[in-house]
């Protein structure tokens, strides 16, 4: 589904991603871990098409199409979803109208007619139930005055509504309380299927106990330096990143 080859990207001339290779197949869940500032959110941003990032090398294939060639909204309509590390507030824009617009834009892209109000509300209700999402938040302005955790849950709820092929979740677990973490994870597990895939960025092994990944990758200094299965997360939890850093330093040519 997603095939990243030797991806390099820079912000304002600073190289941030330095040769990422990653292959995600339908039905898989990949976890990406790594120390602060290693480039996890940058990778997510590049995939979603944030303009500040300049791709300097490499390619990304998304279901047979050149992802890097598409505008951000087209990537979204093609089925790429990013749950943001820091969802933004958009004052005065009603959450429900925003979602309806998003759903219908994506439908229009696929040649489907806009959803009727009734059908939309039915879908909204069933997804609210599925994700155990607070209906009151629906009637408020988009993320305006939401608590940190509420914003994260709102993003995950949008994910449920938009039914993406590939969802990238950037530290969705940070800021969630203990119950919310369990509920959100359960929701994500319900959304898992053989036709969609997840990339889950997290610092904590705990989330991966709920959402069990097929692969775990460690991103460090703009590169994936180690990949493994869920046991790798356990190992990281125990030992931290220092042992990896040392391995890498030994491997890297002296500058």
């Amino acid at each position: 589904m997603l095939n990243i080859k030797n991806l390099h990207a820079a912000v304002e001339g600073n190289a941030i991603l330095k040769g990422i290779n990653l292959n995600v197949k339908a039905g898989e869940v990949h976890a990406i871990m790594g120390p602060n500032g290693s480039g996890k959110s940058s990778l997510a941003s590049v995939l979603a098409g944030r303009e500040a990032y300049e791709v300097t090398e490499g390619s990304v294939d998304f279901d047979g199409k050149d992802l890097l060639d598409m505008s951000p909204e087209v990537r979204a309509r093609e089925g790429l979803f990013l749950a943001f590390q820091y969802p933004v507030e958009i004052p005065g824009v009603s959450n429900i109208n925003f979602l309806k617009t998003a759903v219908n834009e994506i439908r229009a892209y696929h040649g489907q007619p806009p959803m009727q109000a009734k059908a939309f509300l039915d879908m909204l209700k069933s997804k609210q139930k599925l994700m155990e999402f607070d209906a009151n938040l629906m009637n408020r302005s988009l993320n305006e005055g939401f608590s940190g955790g509420e914003k994260k849950r709102n993003d995950v709820f949008q994910m449920a509504m938009l039914e993406p092929k590939l969802a990238i979740m950037d530290e969705t677990d940070s800021g969630l309380d203990i119950d919310a973490l369990r509920i959100v994870s359960a929701g994500v597990n319900k959304l898992r299927g053989k036709d969609n895939a997840f990339i889950i960025i997290t610092h904590y092994q705990r989330l991966l106990e709920y959402i069990v990944p097929d692969f775990v990758h460690v991103l460090y200094n703009g590169r994936i330096v180690k990949s493994g299965t869920k046991e790798l997360a356990l190992e990281l939890e125990e030992k931290g990143y220092d042992w990896l850093k040392e391995d890498i330093r030994l491997e890297e040519p002296v500058q």
Binding site: A48, G49, R50, E51, A52, S71, P72, E73, R75, A76, R77, F81, L82, F84, P87, V88, I90, F98, T101, A102, E105, I106, Y109, Q158, L162
Partner: peptide, 15 residues
């Protein structure tokens, strides 16, 4: 905010 526009872009909504 560019962040706001990007957020909406990421949900399939054009500029």
């Amino acid at each position: 905010g560019e962040d706001q526009v990007f957020y909406l872009n990421q949900r399939g909504i054009d500029n």
